[in-house]
Amino acid sequence: MIFPGATVRVTNVDDTYYRFEGLVQRVSDGKAAVLFENGNWDKLVTFRLSELEAVK
């Protein structure tokens, strides 16, 4: 189960963010908004829950 605050990895091989890890900001309607941070940039991207896996 994916909840806000969880760290997730993108599993969709066709996505630009494949294998990126980010922090879930919100979850609704089968989608999750994931925040990616890297140095001087932040990006908030929405994914279907089926495209994400929780990082242990």
Rank of each mutant, 00 (worst) to 15 (best):
F47D: 01
D29S: 07
D42Q: 15
V24T: 02
V45M: 07
D15W: 04
N12V: 07
S28I: 10
E37P: 10
V13M: 09
F36K: 00
R19F: 07
R19L: 14
A6C: 13
V13E: 10
S28N: 09
V10E: 00
M1A: 12
A54R: 09
P4M: 07
L44N: 04
F20L: 11
T46S: 09
K31W: 15
K56M: 13
T46L: 12
R9L: 06
E51A: 06
R19S: 11
G30W: 04
E51G: 03
T7E: 04
V34F: 01
Y18R: 02
S50Q: 09
V45I: 10
E21M: 12
S28W: 15
V8N: 01
N38R: 12
R26V: 11
K56V: 14
L52P: 00
L44T: 09
L23V: 15
L44Y: 06
K31L: 13
W41C: 15
G22W: 04
K43H: 10
E51W: 06
D14I: 08
L44D: 03
K31V: 12
G5W: 04
K31M: 14
T7P: 05
E51F: 06
A32C: 07
G39D: 10
N12F: 04
L49W: 05
Y17I: 02
F20M: 14
R48F: 14
W41A: 10
R9K: 07
V13L: 07
D15Y: 05
E21V: 15
V27P: 00
G5E: 02
S28F: 15
E53M: 09
D14R: 11
K31N: 08
L23K: 13
P4S: 06
P4T: 07
V10Q: 01
S50Y: 09
A33D: 15
Q25G: 04
A54C: 11
Y17D: 01
S28C: 14
N40K: 12
N38T: 11
N40V: 11
R9W: 09
A33R: 07
T46C: 14
T11D: 03
E21Q: 10
Q25N: 04
Y17G: 02
K43D: 09
R19H: 10
Y18G: 03
T11S: 07
L23Y: 08
P4N: 05
N40S: 12
F36I: 08
N40Y: 09
A54L: 15
V55W: 05
